[in-house]
Write a protein that binds this DNA or RNA. Structure first.
Lengths: 190, 190
DNA sequence: AAACTATGTTCAATATACTAAACATATACG
DNA sequence: CGTATATGTTTAGTATATTGAACATAGTTT
């Protein structure tokens, strides 16, 4: 960031996405309608406490309002050119799946970056027996269910599980979530 | 966060770590000494723009000052209890290495969370031939050198490289960095 | 000890964030 | 059409964030 963040557009975006009016957001956040209007048009330099109240009223984290436009995620390799990395990116039902690992490693070891919109879910069929998944939560909170077991993990947490059963990753919260996933296929096919 | 962030302690921590006086930070940030004093003792609710100036003066990101105490990173497993996950954590030369993967997977597939203090570096000897490392930058910017090649990657970026040569990950910036690392040993020992 | 320097705190003045109420504009409704 | 409702903007007043200067305190120097 070269300049102080202009958060007006961010707030407007979240408020619009939720279909909230200034009056409603004012009630929910405890910030006056007039102030909201001025902040959204960047006419004032709001206080941290005020922006925090607005974030709570919108159901997002303070960070989400302060972030400038998110930088594009880049994929690099120091390996010989033969091993090309992929830039595939699919979005389905509010879940964006970005494949980090090269195509040559498919069904061996795969790395993904998963971005969940609020209340988005990613269900998966059982994989080959012995397959495992390793999750590291980068942002937000998600709930993971694999067979009969489930766990709720949040930013910074790590979770591993066998995924040769039906398994689902769900973002039950009203805030976006980002998860790093490693899939390891049939590790012990000795 | 249940309450608006109290950022006084955070600023004091960074300022102390850099050995800066209020006067010096005032000059660097363009925020008056009086204001800095009051913010550090949480007597006022500073403006976002003001906190941003202070962050720039300290050479950190706005986020670093707003973060409350970072939650402890937890490690979970949905697998049978036989597969125990580790909680090992080593700090050396400003780099904290947290092993995420269980000990049973050592020298097969290993997952780490690396936290770099400003200007900290993690050099490594060559691993077995064919070994590869996969990095995803979670926070900040790091420079990776493997043999003759090198690249600078930032938050959100992904990088893979063969690490059967000497390789180093360095945080050259004045801000902390966090990197997710996957090490895959000898993938093609067919 | 007195005088000087360096650091952080408080004070009085000013700029501005923030609020409640009035205003503008549009759409629905009789 | 006129009235009512719903939305966002502007206005005037108040609370407070911010500042330069004075103050307090401790450590050094002579």
């Amino acid at each position: 960031m070269e300049n102080p963040p202009m958060i007006g557009k961010n707030i407007q975006k979240f408020r619009g996405a939720r279909g909230l009016t200034l009056n409603v957001l004012s009630e929910r956040s405890g910030v006056s309608k007039a102030m909201l209007s001025q902040i959204e048009s960047d006419k004032v330099n709001p206080t941290v406490a005020t922006v925090w109240k607005i974030a709570k009223g919108l159901g997002v984290e303070l960070q989400d309002l302060l972030d400038m436009e998110t930088q594009p995620k880049r994929i690099f390799s120091l390996n010989p050119a033969s091993e090309v990395t992929s830039k595939l990116e699919k979005t389905k039902n509010g879940v964006t799946i970005q494949i980090l690992s090269p195509l040559s490693m498919v069904e061996d070891l795969e790395l993904y970056l998963l971005t969940f919109e609020p209340h988005a879910s990613l269900p998966s069929e059982p994989h080959f027996p012995g397959t495992q998944e390793f999750l590291t939560v980068i942002k937000g909170t998600v709930k993971v269910t694999a067979g009969d077991n489930s766990a709720e993990i949040r930013k910074g947490d790590f979770l591993m599980y066998h995924c040769d059963v039906e398994h689902t990753i769900t973002n039950e919260s009203a805030q976006p979530a980002v998860v790093h996933m490693v899939v390891r296929y049939t590790p012990d096919r000795k």
